[in-house]
Design a protein around this nucleic acid. Structure first.
Lengths: 243, 243
DNA sequence: CGGGCTCTTGACACAAGTCAAATCGCGTGG
DNA sequence: CCACGCGATTTGACTTGTGTCAAGAGCCCG
C-alpha cells in the first residue's frame, strides 16, 4: 500500500519547508509509484540515464564515483528525504552511482515528468533547483573537510553531520543511530585509507567520544565530538524542500 | 556600451547549448545591466544574500570558503560563462565567497527576476537547474581528486581541467593561457600546502611538462600531463547552458 | 567445520606538512 | 635613480600524519 503524499511522514518534519495543499496534490500526481529494493541494489549507475528518479522514504544508501583502478570516492550518504537522480533528470547522464546499503522504500517519479514540473509547477521547479543548490553546498563542505582536516577531524565531522541529519529526521534514540555502512565506505568518503580510518575510530572509542559497532553509531560526548570536528555545538539545521 | 545578448561572444561557443531567438530575447530582458569590477573585488560574500546575480563575460575569479582559523578552501576557479550566485538566488544566502582575480566584466541579473524566470520561462529555469547539476558534478570530481590523488596528480588534474576549459572558451594560444592566480590559491584548491605545491610545480617544470610563471600557464606536453592526471587524452567536453 | 567478509593491530615507508630563511619582483618614496 | 619594503616564490631541513603491507581475530553463513 503506497504512502499518500498527504500522509508522508517526512513532510511533517521541520527540516523540510512546508508545502501547500495544492503542491501536495501535484506531488501525488507527479509520483508514479513506490519501489522497495533490498540492500545492495544499485539504484543509479554512473554514466547511465535512468528513466526514473527517486525520493528516499526509508532506508539508507551511498552515492559514489568509481575510478579506473577500482577505487571509489563516496560522494555522500543517502538518507530519507534525499532526492536521487537530479543529474539524470536534467543532464544526459548520471555522474555518480547510487547504491542501497539497507532495504529501501523509494518514491518513484518519471524522468519525463520533470519537464511537466517545470512547465506547470514553477514553485516545485524552483524547489528542485533549491535542492540542487543545497547539494552543491554540501559537496563544497565535504571538499573543504577533505581538503583541510586531518583524519580525526574528518571522522568527527562525518559523525556530527550524520548525527545531525539523523536527529532532524527523527532517527535518533538516546544519541544512537543506525549507520549501516562499512568502515571502507567511511574511508572512501573521507579520502582516508581503511586502516587509518579504523585506527581513528579506535581513538574515538578510547577517548569515550563515540562508538560505532554493529551498524550502530553512538555519540557518547557530543561536545567533545564537536570540538574535534571544529564545530560549535549550536548550529541550526538548514531547511530545505522535499520533493 | 553593454553587450547585447544577441551579440554575446560566449553564446557562439560550441561549449554552450544553442539558444532560440526567443530565449535570447528573454535573456536580454532578464539582464539588468553590466558591471565592470577591478581585480580583488569581492563579488559575493559567504553568508550574505546578494541582490544581484552574475554571469561572467570576461575575466577570472575564485570561489572559496573561509575557515575560522583564516584558511581557505578554494571551491573552484571562475572563468567566462560561469554563473555566480545561484545559491543566493534560490537559498537564503551564499555558502561561499566569490572574488575577482582580474578585472572582470559581468552580466548582471536581478535576484528577484529569478522567480519570473521560473514562472515565465520554464526552458530557462530548466537550464538553471541544469547548471546547478553541472556544478554538482564538478564539485564531485574535485572531491574525488582531493580524496584520492597525490600532489602531483592533483596539480596535473587542475592544469588539464583549466587547459580544457580555456580551450573550450577560445582562451588558449599555443597551449598557453592566462592563469591569474597565486600558488597559494592553487594550493588551497587542491588541499595541499603552499610549499608542497611549489615543489610539485618545480617538478613539472623540470620534467618539461608545464610551466606557470607570470600568470601564464604553458602546457609543454599535454600527453605527459594527462598521464600524470590519469586522464585519457581524448575527452569530449560536456556541453552546458549559458545563462 | 570451513570459507569469506569485516574489523583490528603492528611494523615500516614515504608523501606532505611545518618552520625558517633566502631570493626575486615590483611599486613607492626619498 | 637608487633604496626600501612588502608580497610572492623558492629551497632546504626536519617532523609527522597517512598509506601500505601483512597477519590475525571475529563473525556469519552455507
Amino acid at each position: 500500500m503506497p504512502t499518500e503524499c498527504q500522509n508522508c511522514p517526512l513532510r511533517k518534519l521541520s527540516l523540510f519547508v512546508d508545502m501547500s495543499d495544492q503542491e501536495v496534490d501535484f506531488m501525488q500526481r507527479f509520483k508514479s509509484g513506490e519501489l522497495e529494493v533490498e540492500a545492495g541494489t544499485t539504484l543509479m549507475m554512473e554514466g547511465s540515464n535512468s528513466p526514473q528518479l527517486f525520493t528516499v522514504l526509508q532506508g539508507m544508501g551511498l552515492r559514489y564515483k568509481t575510478f579506473e583502478n577500482g577505487e571509489r570516492q563516496v560522494i555522500n550518504f543517502v538518507l530519507p528525504g534525499d532526492f536521487i537522480g537530479l543529474q539524470a533528470g536534467v543532464m544526459r547522464e548520471m555522474q555518480h552511482s547510487v547504491e542501497a546499503t539497507t532495504p529501501m522504500t523509494l518514491c518513484v517519479f518519471d524522468r519525463k515528468a520533470v519537464w511537466a514540473l517545470f512547465r506547470d509547477q514553477p514553485e516545485r521547479a524552483f524547489d528542485l533547483t533549491w535542492l540542487a543548490a543545497v547539494e552543491e553546498h554540501l559537496l563544497g563542505e565535504s571538499l573543504a573537510i577533505v581538503g583541510h582536516m586531518n583524519g580525526m577531524g574528518r571522522v568527527a565531522r562525518a559523525f556530527v553531520r550524520l548525527h545531525d541529519r539523523a536527529d532532524a529526521l527523527g532517527l535518533l534514540t538516546n544519541g544512537e543511530m543506525h549507520l549501516p555502512y562499512k568502515q571502507q565506505d567511511l574511508a572512501d568518503a573521507l579520502g582516508l585509507s581503511l586502516v587509518h580510518t579504523n585506527k581513528t575510530l579506535k581513538k574515538l572509542r578510547e577517548q569515550g567520544v563515540a562508538t560505532w559497532r554493529n551498524s550502530r553509531l553512538k555519540i557518547l560526548s557530543y561536545p567533545k565530538l564537536c570540538s574535534l570536528a571544529e564545530l560549535s555545538e549550536s548550529r541550526e539545521p538548514m531547511q530545505r524542500p522535499l520533493i
